[in-house]
Amino acid sequence: MSIDSIYVHKMWDDNELSKMVNGGVPFPMLSDAGGRVGKAFGIFDEDAGVETRGRFIIDPEGVVQGYEVLTPPVGRNISESLRQVQAFQVVRDTKGKEATPSGWKPGKLTLKPGPDLVGKVWEVWKTDMAFD
């Protein structure tokens, strides 16, 4: 979503993005004239008149589970966004019985929070697991 019109979105997809992604961008490219939606999400830069790089993970109930906001010159890590969605899905699927510690990604150990785990995380989780 940006302040550009849907016509500009089409031109960008037709002339550039479709050369990077086969068939063009598959998801909706949203237009936010005046930044009204960006303001509602708190990421609109009033001085520059554009949206900053805000990224929100919204769950099936419509609840914001996480967000990240960067100033324009630095791009995002899409893999990290997807990893976070996968982690929130694990938590949701287990109804919160499992949590995903630092560095978790699919296939890695999850933790089962409870009285038995207090003070014992060090026994099952090692710091090198925080890294890829």
């Binding site: 979503m1 550009d4 949203l30 936010d32 919204i58 419509g62």
Partner: peptide, 29 residues
Amino acid sequence: PAYQKGKFISVKLSEYLGKWVLLCFYPGD
């Protein structure tokens, strides 16, 4: 309003209830 795969559409966030949504804002095309 949105552009998707050759069509101009109208998107409402609440229509995506039941799905995970990744909403990305960016400064400009």
